[in-house]
Design a protein around this nucleic acid. Sequence first.
DNA 1: GTCTATATTAGGATAGAC
DNA 2: GTCTATCCTAATATAGAC
Lengths: 206, 206
Amino acid sequence: MTKSENVLSGEAEKKIIEAATIVFVEKGRTGASMQDIADEAGINRTLLNYYFRSKDKLFTTVFDKVIMSLLLEAIEVLNSDKDILVKFDSFIDVYINGLLKNPHIPVFILNELTGRPDHMIRLFKSSGLRISNFHKEIQEAMDEGRIIHMETSQLIINFISMIIFPFAAKPIVSGMILSEQEVEFDEFMKDRIPSLKKYFLKSITP
Amino acid sequence: MTKSENVLSGEAEKKIIEAATIVFVEKGRTGASMQDIADEAGINRTLLNYYFRSKDKLFTTVFDKVIMSLLLEAIEVLNSDKDILVKFDSFIDVYINGLLKNPHIPVFILNELTGRPDHMIRLFKSSGLRISNFHKEIQEAMDEGRIIHMETSQLIINFISMIIFPFAAKPIVSGMILSEQEVEFDEFMKDRIPSLKKYFLKSITP
DNA sequence: GTCTATATTAGGATAGAC
DNA sequence: GTCTATCCTAATATAGAC
């Protein structure tokens, strides 16, 4: 076993993907260079081409991985047998706490999404997430009178918006809205978990 | 007056800024090339360097202009003497209708913001927008019992999120949430105006 | 002010030695 | 698998003719 061998096959590949994720998420597809990624991984630049044929292929690998991990979290909550109102709370917990650990993922995704809507839809379908079930559960709760009547799509967008947007707009939130009160972003988002649960529940309860 | 003269000084400059805005907003700072912008403007590429010294300077010009136009719209609503509840409705009208004409402005801003939070804050301060007045008006309405009590920052973020996020996530909204119902994005956002007004009012009313 | 020509660099990708 | 050397292209930027 020479010094240049990796202990496990795929270890270098894994290291590259980790480094590429950090760099792509921070700088975006066009803003990141292969050199940036090689530096982050601490390897020679040409090795990136050895393991992944091109920058595009490496990017797609990273992008798919990031999207999938988010979708899987959604599926886990949706597929549970909890009541729809409990699921709302779970989404708030899971995504706010998760994004606090990777706050620029929303901007990364929103930005790279624009150019490849088709690819996104394919990923989405292959994930097995059934958004129609979500619509249906909400609709049932409306029919039972537990939630006010409104277009389910509008309700879903309202809900997702309030979870994701603060992360996407983190510089605005920090610099423009919180700065005068000297509140830290992370603290604000921690407070936001119970605040949003309460607010959203009130907003949809008859 | 030869064929190569512009009628008004600054006309070429204006044409360049318009073209640059289109290209930068669509492709982002790193994704757009000077050639793209020259093509869009129908001029020679080197002219861009003649009028603006560098790509960076051209970008900053565009970025500042876009941000400022958005801030000015906010100021106009905020500075009116309408009741705070009416101002909420005005924001929804102004921004949803405005962004329907330029739907990828949110992604553009959110993306380019990350790298330059300081610059953003300077712009924000120089615009004269006083967010503290907004906080104050909301707080007063709370004290009068017209709005439920909650952290004003959280309320403001909730509000802004529901207006802006659907545009930032347009491919997701179109492809994942609306596709099964065969609803067009623009139609959805038009419906959203009254929907959001009603929803938000209910959410903050005691 | 507008063009052509050119300088310069950065970035992506491959070939080939080890 | 990993490195060095090299190729190629695209992109920014400037000089200089008109």
